[in-house]
């Protein structure tokens, strides 16, 4: 067990190193982040050069790379070119919103997908299965932003029971933290619904098919033949095995949280890191992009570790090997 952990740690470090080196190289291949300023008639060439110096972009690439690795090791993420502020501040302004939006949304959708998938797989070919499957196929084929705009229209404009933009009411004064929370949840409902609906539709099929496959196994027949109750066969024998391949996929969705949900964020004007990362790419904001990738890599490595632990729990074979 300890040997596994040590090996894990070493490979994680190497992965981390390769990932941040790659983003360093790839972002610099896309061009010059100051190119838009060069074309701006309001900005003097001297200003562009001064900014280049301020961000250390005038140094040779290898020096930039060494500086980047050094500052990463001491936990410095540098300054965003576009925001002209420390990258850490820029990301931390948005990350709490994204975490608050995505962790419950992913958890809920994983749970819904799991329950629906198992129930649907068990009733394969029955009305329940067919209707749920068709709905989920429909949802899968629906673009995020379309679903978002439809919900916005129905609940925000027609019924008028939900706000149509923002994460809180702008400029509102709150008597207590509970008032704030109520206001926040009220704004939160539509964006989170969109993500839950979409993600459930996507994950559902995965679990259902995995379960259908498992149900064909001999040990299921044995379990049924032993006269075990239906619930035990389904959840203890079938679902647990069906979950194995799905756990990785479900788990990794947590790791990619910093990628956010660009489309949902945009439609609801919900602040989040999705749009931030998207804009970092568009504006070639190297340092912001590097900061985001460092966080992304760290969380992928961390989540992978957790997934391994879950495997240990789900699959005794892994435990005893």
């Amino acid at each position: 067990m300890r040997r596994v952990l040590v090996r894990r740690a070493i490979t994680s470090l190497i992965t981390f190193f390769i990932a941040i080196s790659l983003v360093f190289v790839i972002s610099r291949l896309t061009g010059d982040p100051l190119s838009e300023l060069i074309e701006n008639p309001e900005v003097a060439p001297e200003t562009v050069e001064a900014l280049r110096r301020a961000f250390g972009l005038d140094k040779p690439l290898y020096v930039q790379y060494i500086n980047f690795i050094q500052s990463t090791l001491v936990g410095q993420l540098g300054y965003s070119i576009n925001y002209k502020r420390p990258v850490f501040d820029v990301i931390m302004e948005k990350l709490p919103y994204t975490i608050a939006l995505l962790i419950p949304a992913i958890t809920l959708s994983n749970y819904f997908a799991y329950r629906l998938g198992v129930e649907s797989g068990w009733r394969r070919g029955k009305k329940f299965d067919i209707s749920i499957t068709s709905v989920s196929l429909f949802i899968r084929a629906t673009p995020h932003f379309w679903l978002a705009i439809v919900l916005l229209y129905i609940f925000g404009v027609w019924l008028g029971i939900f706000p149509i933009f923002g994460a809180v009411t702008a400029g509102a004064e709150y008597a207590s933290i509970w008032d704030w929370l109520k206001d926040y949840l009220w704004h939160y409902f539509l964006p989170v619904s969109v993500i839950v609906i979409r993600a459930t539709g996507a994950m559902f099929l995965y679990i259902r098919n995995s379960l259908v496959e498992t149900l064909g196994e001999d040990y299921i027949t044995t379990a049924v033949a032993k006269g075990l109750p239906e619930k035990i066969v389904l959840y203890k024998h079938a679902a647990r095995n069906a979950l194995l391949p799905a756990v990785t996929v479900m788990g990794l969705r947590y790791a990619f949280i910093i990628d956010g949900a660009v489309l949902t964020e945009t439609v609801f004007s919900y602040p989040g890191t999705g749009r931030l990362v998207y804009e970092a790419i568009v504006y070639r904001d190297f340092f912001l992009l590097q900061g985001a990738v460092i966080i992304l890599t760290t969380s992928v490595i961390f989540v992978n570790f957790i997934i391994d632990l879950i495997y240990l729990y789900l699959d005794p074979r892994v435990r005893y090997r």
Binding site: I149, L152, Y153, G156, V157, G160, P163, I164, F165, G166, A170, G171, E265, T266, V267, F268, S269, R275
Partner: peptide, 22 residues
Amino acid sequence: DELIVNFITEASTAILAVQKGE
């Protein structure tokens, strides 16, 4: 008394917000 500048990232949402008076 007060001025509030909101950031609405999607133009169609902003148009709805004007129509609703938000």
